[in-house]
């Protein structure tokens, strides 16, 4: 399978599939995902638990469970294809060209090593420098992510840091080798609101400073609204809607995206009596419903004349880079949004 890169994008995924055979059946965590991302841009990946959003990003770094995963498709990073690349090559890129920030900094850092040692280790894998140089670099990084007295805190253990400080240290570690692609998996979910705001500010500033490509994975639409240029909504291992942040928030076209927006209580709107939840529960990735994965929960499924349960809809471009995976024709989706959904959300 030799496909020419033919892309000027910094990161491009083409039809990525990550499947895990289990005793209960094939878990299709990622099932045909494509997107592209340029340097200096932020992509928000939104989805609920089991939507495949975390596995996608682990797959880009080659951190998914390799022993039993079946991976196909292409991941192009700066002209290099990663799915077919040898494990050693991908490992050499990890931490250097692409880095990751995890959800819970307490469990994501080794409890037995000091913060400094963990950053030094990350730096020295890719830079042949002495320990003392690496240590200076670690202190410098800690200072840059806003840790006070970094020369003293560098010798602390993770449990001696507060939650927000730990996440800052995690970011310092991820950025220590100046990566060009940074993936943050629910970076603020484990943090308090006021600390979350600090970390989001920090990530925004650092991205500008480093001019890296940023992928932020979250279930929180508020977080992506603050940070992202583009948003990809995942459901059942597939992208169901992709567009600019304005597209997704002001002109969403997929019933699932509407449902997400209607489910959230919002501080910027007057509270009414009821939220508009999506009925039912997200599908398990083993038993993705036939046809459109969202069909059992979709209030508009009946409008497709049986298509929704019979056929998997294609991800098609609606207009100007805004892509939607839905059987309803674009005009119909837009009219439902304008007449039914939008007014309901605005009174909320």
């Amino acid at each position: 399978m030799t496909v020419s890169p033919a892309t000027d994008a910094f990161l491009e995924l083409r039809d990525l599939r990550i499947h895990f055979p289990t005793d209960d059946g094939l878990v299709k965590s990622v099932d045909g995902l494509s997107y592209r991302l340029d340097r200096g841009k932020t992509l928000g990946i939104v989805g609920e638990s089991g939507s495949g959003k975390s596995v996608t990003s682990l797959g880009v770094l080659g951190l998914h469970n390799r022993r039993n995963a079946q991976v196909s498709g292409e991941i192009w990073l700066d002209g290099l294809e990663l799915v077919s690349a040898p494990e050693d090559v991908v490992r050499g890129l990890r931490g250097k060209k692409m880095a990751m920030i995890f959800q819970d900094p307490l469990s994501a850092m080794h409890p037995y090593y000091t913060i400094g040692n963990q950053i030094i280790e990350a730096y020295r894998i890719h830079n042949k420098v002495s320990k003392s140089v690496a240590r200076k670099h670690a202190i410098d990084m800690l200072g840059r992510v806003g840790i006070p007295q970094p020369d003293r805190r560098v010798d602390d253990y993770p449990h001696e840091f507060s939650g927000g400080m730990r996440q800052r240290a995690m970011i310092a570690m991820a950025l220590s080798c100046d990566p060009e692609l940074l993936i943050a998996d629910e970076p603020t979910t484990a943090l308090d609101v006021t600390v979350q705001a600090q970390i989001l500010d920090l990530m925004r500033d650092l991205q500008r400073e480093f001019d890296s490509a940023l992928i932020i994975i979250t279930h929180d639409l508020g977080v992506v609204a603050e940070l992202s240029d583009d948003i990809l909504v995942m459901y059942g291992g597939k992208c169901i809607e992709y567009g600019s942040t304005d597209d997704i928030f002001y002109n969403p076209e997929h019933p699932y995206t509407w449902g997400l927006l209607g489910s959230m209580p919002r501080l910027d709107r007057e509270p009414t009596d009821r939220l508009q939840p999506i009925k039912g529960t997200p599908p398990s990735l083993i038993n993705v419903p036939p046809g459109c994965a969202f069909s059992p929960r979709c209030p508009y499924g009946s409008r497709t004349g049986g298509l929704s349960t019979g056929e998997v809809p294609e991800l098609t471009e609606s207009r100007g880079g805004h892509k939607v995976r839905c059987h309803m024709p674009p005009a119909e989706r837009r009219s439902i949004w304008e007449s039914d959904v939008k007014p309901m959300l605005e009174t909320t």
């Binding site: 682990l58 770094l61 951190l63 050499g92 890129l93 931490g95 080794h110 280790e121 570690m173």
Partner: peptide, 14 residues
């Protein structure tokens, strides 16, 4: 299976 093992791999450690 700990998260910190995943972190160690994410750094690019052998």
């Amino acid at each position: 299976n700990e998260d910190y093992i995943r972190t160690a791999r994410a750094k690019g450690l052998a």
